[in-house]
Write a protein that binds this DNA or RNA. Sequence first.
DNA 1: TATTGTTATACTCTATAACTATA
DNA 2: TATAGTTATAGAGTATAACAATA
Lengths: 149, 149
Amino acid sequence: MTGTTETVSYVSPADEAWDAFQELFMQYRPRMLEIHAEYELKPPPVALALRAIDEPTPMGKIADHLCCDGSTVTWIVDRLEERGLVERQADPRDRRVRLVALTDEGRRIRNEIRAKLSQAPPAIAALSEEDQIALRDILRRAVRVPADR
Amino acid sequence: MTGTTETVSYVSPADEAWDAFQELFMQYRPRMLEIHAEYELKPPPVALALRAIDEPTPMGKIADHLCCDGSTVTWIVDRLEERGLVERQADPRDRRVRLVALTDEGRRIRNEIRAKLSQAPPAIAALSEEDQIALRDILRRAVRVPADR
DNA sequence: TATTGTTATACTCTATAACTATA
DNA sequence: TATAGTTATAGAGTATAACAATA
């Protein structure tokens, strides 16, 4: 029996890459929590909501993005609104909808957070420039694949 | 002034790679939550704790790993112990310490979860085998860098 | 009738402070 | 005296169900 017929416990390079990917993310997680904590954005979904908003966004879309209940989004947006980071706007197309929009301050803070989170961790920064570029190009190709599931 | 002296808004390939990395992770997040939900491991830290345990592990080390308070780990381990997935053991070297160890059932469940989480998402699986291998090799090189911060 | 979002509510999760037991 | 972990507790976070407004 040759190696190529072994399928039961075969691990594809994709799965091996994915394991390393996740390990790297778990390495980074404390830093991400630290950055969120600097802005008192807690629990994580509050920070994720702020990070995700760009254009005015319906409450329901935020719920989908966070994978949480709509009533939880009401609570999250209440918190962000109390702090003046977002405001609820009417949607002229459908008066049931409430659009969540960044305030100027909210945009400033969100951009600050994004900038900090965008700094590659040591694990990536220490790679050769050749590796960095190859990694960037491969990941950009990957991200373009629709995540239908 | 030449381009190489421009430092203010320069984005390195490392940072660009890191942005794509994070986008891919956010794409995958719903699937991760779904897998955790299949096993009723909620909130996320409960699932992360179970996933992380291999050898019997002191409570305090789990708190460090999750970036949470020790009393929260007491609560998390209580939940896992109620379900028969872990058990507290004495540490013969230091009687203050409680080691959290997987039960047979806990190891079975943890392995099942790990196997599901190890399946590369479509974005990765759809890459050419050449890209998959390059990605794996680069990420493995990255992960070996100590995450001193 | 169905959908978007809010309110009221109960339950879950989390940290703080005080405590026990070891070191 | 310091450290590992637990307990008691208050407060934060989350979902469910019932509701109001609009489609």
